[in-house]
């Protein structure tokens, strides 16, 4: 599993667009929002947690279809499937690699970018904590979606249609935690829910992803 994670990370770095692309996309969305809603600081402060979360979600979505598509194209996928590594581990390794290349940099960058949207200072720890718990779940669910659409020619578009509704609970709890934190309220409850979802997806999604991968490889 370690080998697979390291290989995917190395590929992401060498092929370019691994770390950078998702982050750049995140930045662009954040920059575009004030142009759309106006520069008023109070408005931006109100919507900042939501915008940051939606942008993180879209940035994670952007690279999902590459999780399995490249391995499918060059034929590594059947080779991995016949390797001694169980497919469940392959799916988990892929999710971890995806998280390290997108979720982790987003989590680290989001508090920095919060300044652009005039995020209230009290929200920073909650935003960071929420993203730290939520983005792994995004990657795990996304891996399932990518496994579902692996052989399809126009998989990318379908993938977003399938995966985005699954992201709804994470978005709700994540943005809610940051918003409550920003209003100076107690926000542990949504954060705990978020942690629960993250653990649940960690436990189940690799199995679901491996199941659909097997079906797709058949």
């Amino acid at each position: 599993m370690k080998a697979l994670i390291l290989r995917d990370l190395r590929l992401a770095i060498r092929a370019g667009g691994g770390f950078g692309l998702g982050l750049a996309f995140f930045l662009i969305v954040i920059v575009l929002v004030p142009f759309g809603v106006g520069p008023e600081a109070a408005v931006l402060r109100r919507i900042a947690p939501g915008i940051l979360w939606v942008a993180a979600l879209l940035a994670a979505l952007l690279s999902l279809d590459r999780i399995f598509a490249l391995d499918h194209e060059d034929g590594s996928l059947p080779l991995l499937a016949t390797a001694p590594l169980p497919l469940e581990s392959v799916a988990l390794a892929k999710a971890i690699a995806h998280w390290i290349t997108t979720g982790l940099p987003l989590t680290l960058a989001a508090p920095g970018l919060g300044f652009l949207l005039n995020l209230s200072p009290a929200a920073y720890p909650w935003l960071f904590g929420g993203l730290a718990l939520g983005t792994p779940a995004l990657s795990l669910i996304g891996t399932f979606g990518a496994a579902l659409t692996v052989g399809l020619r126009r998989g990318g578009l379908l993938l977003s249609l399938l995966v985005l509704p699954l992201y709804v609970p994470i978005l709700i709890f994540g943005a809610e935690a940051a918003r409550r934190g920003g209003d100076g309220l107690e926000a542990t409850v949504p954060l705990v829910f978020l942690g629960g979802i993250a653990l649940g997806t960690l436990a189940l999604m690799p199995f679901a992803a491996a199941l659909v991968l097997r079906i797709n490889l058949r």
Binding site: L148, P169, I172, F193, V212
Partner: peptide
């Protein structure tokens, strides 16, 4: 049929989750 069935099951779990998340929201 196989893939949509798995999607339906996973989707049901998340639909239920969304229902409660939305209530909370």
């Amino acid at each position: 049929a196989d893939l949509t069935s798995v999607l339906c099951i996973v989707g049901s779990v998340f639909a239920l989750l969304s229902r409660y998340a939305v209530n909370f929201w």
